[in-house]
């Protein structure tokens, strides 16, 4: 059977075919789950929040203007609902990571290369173990970084879309993304012991 596109489904739901919402729900379930899992630290609240997000999407479906992709709008509803929840729970929203890597970057640009005597510790790490450690390290990052990493790497959204969802300027999204990945690389490298190669 031919798959109906988002617009057809939305129009059908607005015309009263509420059962079609199950198809939209199935299509965007992963996006909502990923965002909620990364933004909300308390696991016991996540399921209720997912339900609330989908109900909000259903109730305000008529407000979707088709000016962006539907996935961007869904992510924005999910993001705002999570932010409201976190504000109610008094979870700090605006922590930051230390920026200062520009000078280090300048030094690196002029360095003379000496062949490494050690293999990259991340390249040697077992993939499953690396993923598990990475999830823990992501959870330790401030909220904006976790959100941006999720939208960029899991949902394959671009800087403009992420900016629209989070309300941050595109340049800030880009900076946060680079900073988060650099911090993760450093923390993971520190996590795995360096072994000398023969």
């Amino acid at each position: 059977m031919e798959e109906r596109d988002d617009k057809t489904l939305i129009e059908s739901i607005l015309a009263g075919e509420q059962g079609d919402f199950a198809l939209l729900l199935e299509r965007y379930q992963k996006l909502v789950i990923h965002l909620v899992a990364r933004m909300v630290p308390r696991a016991s609240d996540r399921e209720d929040l997912c339900q609330e997000i989908f109900l909000r999407i259903y109730r305000s479906l008529g407000e979707f203007q088709y000016k962006s992709r539907f996935s961007t709008w869904v992510a924005a509803v999910a993001h705002n609902t999570c932010i409201n929840y976190l504000q109610k729970k008094r979870v700090p929203l605006y922590q930051d990571l230390a920026a200062g890597s520009e000078e280090e970057d300048e030094e690196v640009r002029r360095v003379e290369w000496v062949p490494a005597t050690e293999a990259s510790p991340l390249a040697r790490a077992e993939a499953g173990d690396l993923r598990e450690t990475l999830q823990r390290e992501i959870e330790a990052l401030p909220l904006h970084y976790r959100t941006i990493l999720t939208l960029f790497h899991l949902e394959e959204m671009n800087y403009a879309e992420i900016g629209e969802i989070t309300g941050l300027p595109e340049g800030t999204v880009k900076n946060y993304l680079f900073r988060a990945r650099r911090v993760l690389r450093d923390r993971l490298t520190a996590h795995y012991p360096v072994e000398a190669t023969s």
Partner: peptide, 13 residues
Amino acid sequence: AYEPLFAALTSAP
């Protein structure tokens, strides 16, 4: 040093 990190970042929570 970045490649394994980028590969792992696509894994879901």
